[in-house]
Design a protein around this nucleic acid. Sequence first.
DNA 1: ATGTCCCACTTGGTGGGA
Length: 260
Amino acid sequence: MKIATWNINGVKARIDTVISWLEQASPDIACLQEIKSVDENFPREPFEALGYHVETHGQKGFNGVAILSRLPFDEVNRGLPGNDGDEQARFIEGVFSVDGGVVRVVSLYLPNGNPVDSEKFPYKLAWMRRLHDWTRERLALEEPLVLAGDYNVIPQQGDCHDPKAWEGDALFRPESRAAFRRLLNLGLTEAVRSVTDKTGTYTFWDYQAGAWQKNNGIRIDHLLLSPEAANKLRAVHIDKHVRAWEKPSDHVPVVIEYAA
DNA sequence: ATGTCCCACTTGGTGGGA
């Protein structure tokens, strides 16, 4: 089966693009971020017409995540535990029955964190600590777990076109990268880096300043796999061609082939 | 590092967020 992650930058503005990609790529599970819609207004029908079950965790205007799945949801959990006062919709977990077991899939939209001298940067780092703690608990289940989403973290120098330009940015700050490493060091496998060392492998190109035309990109959309899930990883690819479509998102889908 | 896009709004131009 195929499991994908894609920051679509607004479901209302992107509906035709997303439907086209689903028809072409046919993922079994698609994790979406930045739906920018409340749950009541999410356009479920066109997705259901393609055979997807739809679960969302949205809010007005920005953020918001969703999971589309051809498999029915056994369980859905909304919101990242660890801060009851956090109103931002950035996390949804679905549990699915597959051959001989389950797979847990998370669609997450990690805070951007800019500007770093505002309250947004500590919020990002605190969110990453909460994600670390939540993941440690889930790993104790010793089940297949896929953490998919827009992490807003550039892990390494080779994951951006121009490291100098990103110096000091919340996506590339040492604290953000260290927190991402701490997450990986729980024992997770990062899907893209498990199949290629190639630099210049990007998932996002800014709308501004001709970033796409200059291949001035960054790699910030990641799928992190528990050991039980990594054992079932068969292939990984980035659907880069989608960035050249009409009315593209600034992100492109990242897809894994998963043996289940 | 800003040449853009998306969203909300007692809306038709502006501010916030990326």
